[in-house]
Lab assay of single mutants.
Amino acid sequence: DVEPGKFYKGVVTRIEKYGASINLNEQVRGLLRPRDMISLRLENLNVGDEIIVQAIDVRPEKREIDFKYIP
């Protein structure tokens, strides 16, 4: 289970102007929005990149997770 405040290694699977889709595994994925990137710009991400993200909002009833990137 993903817990708010914990850090996870994820893989960038899609990049859109509203954010990047991050997969932690086949069943768990979430969104990294541009506003939640401290020192990383969306255009510097590539599909397949592995990054460390922090879960900031977990809504299991909607199967949604928001991530934050902290270098």
Score class of each variant (00 low, 15 high):
Leu32Ile: 05
Val11Leu: 09
Lys9Glu: 02
Leu42Tyr: 06
Ala20Phe: 08
Lys62Leu: 14
Asn46Pro: 00
Val2Gly: 04
Gly48Asn: 05
Asp49Arg: 02
Val28Cys: 10
Asp57Val: 13
Ser39Asp: 15
Gly5Arg: 04
Asp66Ala: 11
Arg33Ala: 05
Arg29Pro: 03
Leu40Pro: 02
Ala20Leu: 08
Val47Glu: 06
Ile38Gln: 11
Pro71Asp: 08
Ile38Glu: 10
Ile15Arg: 01
Asn44Cys: 15
Leu24Gly: 01
Val58Trp: 09
Glu64Asp: 06
Ser39Ile: 09
Val28Asn: 05
Arg33Gln: 05
Gly48Tyr: 03
Val58Thr: 07
Asn44Gln: 14
Ile65Thr: 03
Arg59His: 08
Pro71Lys: 08
Tyr69Lys: 02
Ile51Glu: 00
Asp57Gln: 14
Ile65Met: 05
Ser21Arg: 14
Glu26Ile: 12
Val53Leu: 07
Ile38Val: 13
Gln27Val: 13
Val28Trp: 15
Tyr18Thr: 11
Phe7Asp: 01
Val2Phe: 10
Arg14Ser: 12
Asn25Leu: 06
Leu45Arg: 00
Gln54Asp: 00
Arg41Pro: 05
Gly30Pro: 06
Gly10Asn: 01
Ala55Cys: 14
Pro4Met: 13
Met37Trp: 04
Gly5Cys: 13
Pro71Tyr: 07
Lys9Asp: 01
Leu42Gln: 02
Arg29Gln: 14
Val28Met: 08
Leu31Gly: 01
Lys68Arg: 15
Lys68Trp: 05
Pro71Arg: 09
Glu43Lys: 10
Leu45Tyr: 02
Leu40Met: 09
Asp49Ala: 06
Gly10Val: 08
Arg59Ile: 05
Lys17Thr: 12
Tyr8Met: 01
Leu40His: 06
Asn44Pro: 02
Asp36Gly: 05
Leu24Phe: 05
Glu50Gln: 11
Tyr8Gly: 00
Glu50Val: 15
Ile65Lys: 03
Ile70Trp: 13
Asn46Leu: 11
Leu42Asn: 02
Val58Met: 06
Glu3Val: 15
Ile15Ser: 01
Val58Gly: 04
Val11Trp: 12
Pro34Leu: 10
Val58Ser: 05
Leu31Phe: 11
Ile22Asp: 01
Ile22Leu: 03
Pro60Val: 12
Lys62Cys: 10
Ile70Asn: 09
Ile15Gln: 01
Ser39Asn: 14
Asn25Cys: 10
Ile38Leu: 09
Leu24Pro: 01
Glu3Gln: 14
Asp57Ile: 12
Ile22Gln: 01
Gly10Leu: 09
Ser39Tyr: 13
Ser39Val: 09
Glu26Pro: 14
Val28Gly: 04
Arg33Tyr: 04
Gly30Arg: 02
Glu3Asn: 07
Gly30Ala: 04
Lys9Tyr: 08
Glu3Phe: 12
Ala55Val: 15
Thr13Pro: 00
